[in-house]
Design a protein around this nucleic acid. Structure first.
Lengths: 241, 241
DNA sequence: ACCTGAACACCGTTCAAGT
DNA sequence: ACCTGAACACCGTTCAAGT
């Protein structure tokens, strides 16, 4: 899935870290090993548990040693996230007649991948994704929309907006599964919300009261996410050049 | 703008804090005073500078004293955010013929308000907004969409999706203005991005290279945000019941 | 050239003790 | 009833000193 045999991409100047890493010794640390250890902690204990100290400990060193390979926790997170984006499968060739379905498919893949990595989605926010794999993802989405014949500027904005939506949903969903431990807990929580909306003073919140049901629907499966995808795709299709 | 003269709403059971606060003494602390001090710090120095310690210091006490009025930093943040949502102006009566424009107007107001509070938008994420003012905001959006004749379930999902988009954009924009200090800096950054995309290997990233211009357009003003609003509103209008 | 112990300057939260 | 000093168990990052 990764493209590690290709020549490395240049780095955006303002993102470039002081190039401190060297040819690694026998069993020395490396950016890859550090990122791998970090992701394992995220998967096991969540994003907050991933500290420079905990990552270092997993590798049998102290936190200070990581700074020889990574300039900051921020940069490490970027590495981890780009690696995860690399898990997103690349689908078939762009098909002009199926751009909407293909775009939705990519979005579904991203959601599926991040749902396997706890609340990592939170860290992905508002980070302009410039890693190798993120660029490939953008390239892919653009190619699908271009095949679909969308105007360039629509494609460009959509390239921002679509991941924004997907990541926001992933983060939201990761919170639910953090706060509630079992599917039954989630159902309880949703039920509590519905009852709460229904019990609000009807003179001040008539609409919240009467929509208590729909407002709390679709939190359990894919409906909510699919609704958003449909809105986005239909909206994009309706945008003038 | 606030509705402090109305009877207090019940609190969702799982959100209820141990009711530790009492009738405040002469110049004692209060939830309101604490939230006000916290927001002032956010406005002056950003979200990260808002710590329990810094808020307490601004009030002339120690951090521990805040815990008599607020159960956690999390709860304090909720208080601050709901207060800021209260700054969003409530527009005219819902007009069936203008629901799209009215919905966009609400979204613009929310963006305008949060853009005055640094990166506070970040803290608003994936927090189901259940404060007094947030509920009023939801009630308002629902009333506009109901006047527009949208199906109930579409309205309910949209109630989630619209703020999600607006807040995500607010957060993204707050990052730009944190990393870049002047408009000129922002322009430089955007230019750097454009050059970067244009300089990628064209055999691997043909679309990113050729769309370098559009991809980095509209980051300075409202176009990007307005594009998203338009997509959402058109998409919502196109959803079947 | 790389790695590290110890330190610096912080966090959120708790709790015994005060008034 | 309310407030607080001090402590607990942490953070990210730096840096002099080691090998």
């Amino acid at each position: 899935v990764t493209s590690s045999d290709l020549p490395p991409l240049p780095r955006l100047a303002s993102r470039r870290s002081r190039d401190r890493r060297r040819a690694p010794r026998e069993r020395a640390l490396s950016r890859e090993a550090i990122a791998k250890a970090a992701l394992e902690i995220v998967d096991r204990e969540g994003l907050d548990a991933m500290t420079m100290r905990s990552v270092a400990q997993a590798l049998g060193t102290g936190a200070a040693s990581l700074y020889a390979h990574v300039t900051s926790k921020e940069e490490l997170l970027e590495l981890v996230i780009d690696g995860v984006i690399g898990e997103v499968p690349t689908p078939d060739q762009p098909d002009p007649d199926r751009w909407q379905e293909q775009l939705k498919e990519v979005a579904r893949s991203i959601r599926a991948v991040f749902s396997r990595h706890r609340d990592l989605a939170r860290a992905s926010f508002a980070r302009i994704p410039l890693g190798e794999n993120a660029l490939r993802g953008s390239e892919l989405m653009i190619s699908i929309m271009r095949a679909g014949g969308l105007p360039d500027q629509v494609i460009a904005y959509a390239c921002d907006m679509l991941p924004l939506y997907v990541m926001a949903v992933c983060y939201e969903e990761s919170l639910y599964s953090t706060e509630t431990n079992s599917p039954a807990d989630l159902a309880d929580f949703v039920a509590e919300m519905r009852t709460y909306f229904a019990s609000l003073p009807p003179n001040r919140f008539p609409n919240l009261v009467s929509l208590a049901g729909p407002l709390t629907a679709g939190s359990e499966g894919d409906e909510r996410f699919e609704f958003g995808l449909e809105v986005l795709v239909r909206g994009l299709a309706a945008m003038p050049g």
